[in-house]
Design a protein around this nucleic acid. Structure first.
Length: 1098
RNA sequence: GGACGGGUAGCUUAGGUUGGCUGGAGCACCCGGCUGAUAACCGGGAGGUCGCAGGUUCAAAUCCUGCCUCGUCCA
């Protein structure tokens, strides 16, 4: 038994060597910090010594190593015979600077791919760029100040598109640097690019598949439209331009055909009235017919009015609010009574009835409410989404009364034709007034969308538009969605599933310039051709030229963009001239084609495609649910009738420290380089993964990154440094010496077993997408099990000068543990672990295999846990009994312990006791507690449970347990069985004792002090102070000192033996001890238990 | 307005399916200890109406209902 207090200090001889070593590593550092190549020849796996950690230098050095030896390429190709794991990169747009939120998504993409590769899969990772679309155009328009379509066309469409094409690469370098710096391994040298001809051609092919299946059709879509710029706007752009405005609103009397009454309707957009073709009422809304009794009073404002005796119909709820005349209610009825009644058109010539049976009749719509207006909704098919949908449903004529220029079409009304609609409000009211069809005008203040570029009010306008008939494949979409493994599952079932159940036809055309052109040519009479390839286009051009057209050249590499494709004029089967429909595709269509267009399927990448479809894994932010996640599935369903991806990880949003979404417009984006250049990419990535479940929103806390660095990486580094420095010194080579695990001390077998347990759990958590849990557990292992127990307890084992079996066992164990940790961490944080792995094994961790579960000794883990809990209990006992840690106790008793004798030496040191014994007479220190098992008892006793619990609390535990175990315990009529309670052994009162957590083992410490113990405790206090002083004085570790110590009265006697011990520990070559004296001025002094101690170090 | 998700200590959060024993942890704070062991570590303390209100139950952070609130997406 080691009766000395623990002295965690190496012998001087070893320190001298360590110093030499420190010097050596410093030299290495200054010359070439963190040289990370394969630095030891095979078979000579002796680690190099390790310097202080500089995470940025380490990572940057590894980046160049990886680039020199193409470690990524090797990781992929070394598994080329493995089962493929297919990843598809969601293409980012490179026309914005990457932020920390991009790093998060890329971390999860990367870690899964790396993990699968280490498992032996063949994991190719092709990069991709999204290069078309409105955001690109807007960037360019802003830069060149081209704020309208007119301006763009004046600038030149070809020139404009060239600007777009170039602007896409503005931030490519920034993206590349971020990607490389964060170690997202993806092939950016051969990416797919949506603007490339091959990619566009594949998109054309896909559209043709849809066209041939009759899934592609032409229709209208009502969109916010700016006639000044000639553009319609996405909801995002609309949101930029809401303004509060005051406008005239009007109450209009629609005269019924077979009735003297008029129906009153309200609108805030008088310019849509010429387009009126219907009135919508709520079938269940109550309406009334009223008769105007008296002329209007003097307070009448504005135009409008009614004749006495005139009858109008209005929703009952809105009568008081709207009618400004004295009026009598004649009749009350539901809206359904009105449905089908015809009324007189306001502007008889504006819209042609065509074959419509329903035009200018009253229609029912369940969305009609009585919150404002009159309860009757004026319906102009082309100028409102609800209007359009209703019109399509019941067959109203779909004709424009307004042109694309925002002016009324000729033939609408002689006073309106050709005029800008927003300037016609007065004229329209006058026209209505003169026909006695205007009841009232009223100023109306509301938020209305305006063009964010020109500030003009937007018009809701039915634009010609192309659709994919998604409603036709709804059942298939739902079926395929069921086959996708979603993480988290509620995104698939809930958010996405809900979206699919309400799927609408997909409006895929945009009236824009920069994008994949819609490959449909159409003749004036409506004949159409969809072109699915360049070859087909060439054939058609040839045919057209043969029929007399004079088309430009159409070479094999014809640029598939506007305006080039617009210039081809084709000829229909009937000989009619066909022009291309002047649209480009929604850029979501482009990215939705990525699974095949990236390979140029079906033109020359078909084999590649077939081997890489469906995709195994995609991962993007949850905001892609209705974006990319949807379009991938939409395209694969319509084109291949197949699922597109098998697993989809939907990531939570990244919020700033205040919980706001990070976005460019808010300017709250965290720059990833702030962390790359401080804590490093490893800590940044590990932080992101451990901060929460991937699908939960992440409040990005810069402090958290720092904490992760300090805790996880610094701790790991120091464990590694501890091992590598001694291994280097001792020429330890794990490939030369052997040390069977079974022959190693139990501390070693424990850490190995524990790591195997953690590693098995880690793998299982990975499989279940719970990366955060896996990594938190591993972090706990590194910090608590490895660093704070194993390494701390093993420190002295390596200080031994001789090569002992014990030291060898420790070194092998450290080697094994560190290597395995490196492999587990490699997918998440790939830098430091590669550095460590290379130094310990000579091989990159990224070429190593994923650890497989191996031997676990559960029993050993349980016993070690008990030992640690007992050490903890010892500290608690000392606090409770006010007994300093450095003051040794004579005896510690372990009550009820068995099977941990092999750890007594460790435990005695931890507890600072002179001797540790096992107490077999349990009852001397312990009593029992009978704790009710509420689950069992609740089932048995139900409402009588409180009574039973009270009785149990009262009862004497010994007698109670005796009764229960003998089957004669009856409380409140219930017989209690042993399963109904739990018996615990706990410490008796009156001892300095504590029962270790989760056990029946009690630790008792002897609090009695003796002169010998006090002397030893005092010696330890002095040693500690002097050592600290040495450190303050920055003395060389092996420097000798002279020590003078004065022990004031009140101190215990310092026994000669202990004084000698002090002298040797602090390397004092001579010393003076004055027991009872006071130190002179200038000496250092401190108190122990109220007695002063002074000392001088020279 | 609809769908989905969240609300637990000053902050970040675990737990919630399967109701049960004292609601865990980290950061920050206070006290103490330990340290030639790192930006550490250990023990103790303070800090909680588990968003609110009902309900079910012997028992609710957990299940149910309603409401409030925040976020995202869609209208």
């Amino acid at each position: 038994m080691d009766t000395q207090p623990p002295q965690d200090m190496p012998p001087i001889s070893k320190l001298t060597l360590s110093m030499a070593l420190a010097g050596k590593s410093q030299c290495l550092n200054s010359a070439a910090p963190f040289k990370t190549g394969p630095m030891v020849p095979r078979g000579m796996a002796v680690p190099n010594p390790v310097g202080e950690l500089d995470p940025v230098a380490l990572e940057e050095s590894l980046m160049s190593t990886w680039s020199q030896e193409d470690t990524f390429g090797q990781q992929v190709s070394s598994r080329k015979n493995g089962k493929p794991f297919i990843f598809l990169e969601g293409p980012p747009t490179a026309n914005g600077k990457p932020g920390i939120h991009h790093v998060v998504a890329r971390t999860y993409k990367d870690l899964v791919c790396r993990w699968k590769a280490m498992e032996g899969h063949f994991v190719e990772r092709k990069g991709g760029w999204d290069t078309h679309g409105l955001p690109v155009e807007i960037e360019v328009q802003k830069r060149l100040d081209l704020m309208s379509n007119e301006a763009i066309e004046a600038f030149g469409m070809a020139e404009f598109n060239e600007e777009c094409r170039n602007s896409v690469w503005t931030y490519e370098q920034a993206w590349r640097e971020m990607t490389e710096r964060m170690a997202f391994w993806v092939d950016l040298d051969d990416p797919y690019v949506t603007l490339h001809n091959n990619y566009v051609e594949s998109c054309w092919w896909a559209l043709k598949q849809m066209f041939d299946k009759d899934l592609l059709f032409r229709g209208h879509k009502v969109l916010p439209y700016c006639p000044q710029t000639g553009t319609s706007y996405s909801s995002h752009e609309v949101a930029l331009g809401y303004k509060e405005v005051e406008e005239p609103s009007v109450y209009v009397k629609f005269k019924l055909v077979d009735d003297d009454a008029s129906v009153l309707a309200w609108t805030t957009t008088p310019w849509t009235l010429p387009g009126n073709v219907g009135l919508a009422v709520g079938p269940d809304v109550t309406y009334i017919r009223v008769r105007i009794d008296q002329p209007a009073g003097d307070n009448w404002e504005g135009r409008g009015g009614a004749i006495v005796g005139e009858e109008v119909i209005i929703a009952k709820d809105l009568f008081k609010e709207v009618i400004r005349h004295h009026a009598t209610i004649l009749e009350e009825f539901p809206g359904s009574d009105l449905v089908g009644k015809a009324y007189v058109p306001l502007f008889p010539n504006a819209v042609d009835r065509g074959g419509s049976q329903t035009a200018w009749t009253i229609l029912e719509a369940d969305w009609v409410t009585t919150t404002d207006g009159t309860g009757v909704v004026h319906t102009a098919v082309m100028y409102g989404e609800d209007d359009y949908n209703l019109g399509m449903e019941v067959g109203l004529p779909a004709q424009h009364t307004v042109g694309m220029d925002g002016a009324f079409l000729t033939g609408t009304h002689e006073q309106l034709d050709g005029r800008y609609v927003k300037e016609c409000d007065d004229t329209i009211m006058d026209i209505l007034m003169s026909a006695n069809q205007l009841y009232r005008e009223k100023a109306y203040i509301h938020e209305y969308p305006h063009c964010w570029r020109t500030d003009h009010p937007l018009l809701y306008y039915a634009m010609d538009s192309w659709f994919v008939r998604m409603t036709a494949v709804k059942e298939r979409l739902l079926e395929f969605n069921d086959q996708v493994e979603w993480a988290p599952d509620w995104v698939g079932e809930g958010r996405f599933g809900e979206w699919l159940r309400n799927v609408k036809d997909w409006a895929i055309s945009r009236e824009r310039y920069w994008g994949t052109p819609l490959p449909v040519w159409r003749s004036a009479s409506g004949e159409m051709k969809c072109i699915g390839s360049i070859e087909e286009l060439q054939d058609e051009v040839t045919k057209a030229n043969a029929a007399g057209q004079n088309n430009p050249e159409c070479p094999d590499d014809v640029d598939l963009h506007r305006p080039i494709v617009d210039d081809f004029v084709l000829v229909s089967d009937n000989g009619e001239i066909m022009h291309r429909e002047p649209f480009v595709m929604d850029c979501w269509f482009d990215s939705g084609c990525a699974s095949f267009a990236q390979w140029h399927h079906p033109f020359d990448g078909t084999e590649k495609f077939e081997n890489n479809f469906p995709i195994d894994y995609i991962c993007e932010g949850v905001d892609q649910t209705r974006g990319w996640f949807y379009t991938l599935l939409a395209v694969s369903t319509t084109v291949f009738d197949s699922i597109c991806y098998k697993r989809c990880l939907s990531l939570g949003l990244i919020l700033d420290a205040e919980g706001k979404k990070m976005s460019k417009s808010k300017g709250n984006i965290v720059d990833p380089w702030d962390h790359f250049n401080r804590e490093g990419a490893d800590a940044t990535r590990w932080y992101m993964v451990t901060a929460g479940a991937p699908w939960n929103p992440l409040k990005f806390d810069p402090n958290g990154v720092r904490e992760t660095y300090a805790k996880m990486f610094l701790t790991l580094w120091n464990c590694y440094k501890f091992h590598a420095d001694y291994a280097s010194l001792d020429n330890f080579d794990p490939t030369v010496t052997e040390c069977p695990v079974g022959k190693r001390p139990s501390l070693d077998r424990w850490i190995l077993s524990k790591l195997n347990t953690v590693s098995a759990g880690y793998h299982a958590q990975f499989e279940g997408w719970d990366f955060h849990k896996a990594c938190r557990d591993l972090e706990d292992f590194v910090v608590n099990d490895l660093s704070n127990w194993y390494v701390r307890r093993s420190r002295r084992r390596l200080w031994d000068d001789d090569t002992s079996a014990d030291k060898l066992a420790c070194q092998h164990t450290l080697h094994d543990v560190l290597v395995k940790i490196c492999r587990l961490m490699a997918p998440v944080s790939p830098f430091m672990v590669d550095h460590i792995h290379r130094n310990l094994t000579g091989e990159s961790v990224h070429l190593a295999d994923w650890p497989t579960p191996s031997h676990q000794d559960e029993d050993l883990e349980v016993r070690m846990q008990l030992v640690r809990n007992l050490a903890e209990a010892g500290r608690k006992i000392r606090v409770e009994n006010d007994h300093r840690q450095r003051l040794p106790c004579q005896t510690g008793w372990l009550v009820g312990a068995s099977g941990i004798e092999e750890f007594y030496e460790i435990l005695a040191e931890e507890l600072n006791v002179m001797e540790l014994t096992t107490e077999t007479d349990l009852d001397r220190f312990q009593r029992i507690e009978v704790v009710p098992n509420r689950k069992m008892l609740g089932r048995k006793c139900r409402q009588d449970l409180p009574k039973v619990l009270a009785a149990l609390a009262e009862a004497d535990p010994e007698a109670l347990w005796d009764d229960i175990s003998n089957g004669r315990c009856i409380i409140a009529g219930f017989e209690l069985e042993p399963v109904d309670v739990e018996v615990r052994r706990v410490e008796r009162e009156g001892f300095a004792a504590l029962t270790a957590d989760d056990s029946d083992v009690t630790l008792v410490l002897d609090m009695a002090t003796t002169p010998e113990l006090l002397s030893k405790g005092l010696a330890r206090e002095i040693i500690r102070r002097v050592q600290q002083k040495r450190k303050e004085l920055d003395l060389a570790v092996d420097a000798s000192i002279s020590l003078s110590v004065w022990l004031e009265l009140g101190n215990p006697e310092l026994i000669a033996e202990d004084w000698d011990h002090v002298m040797s520990e602090v390397r004092a070559k001579d010393g003076v001890l004055d027991q009872g004296g006071e130190g002179p001025d200038g000496s250092d002094s401190f108190d122990v238990d109220g007695a002063g101690i002074s000392f001088i170090v020279n």
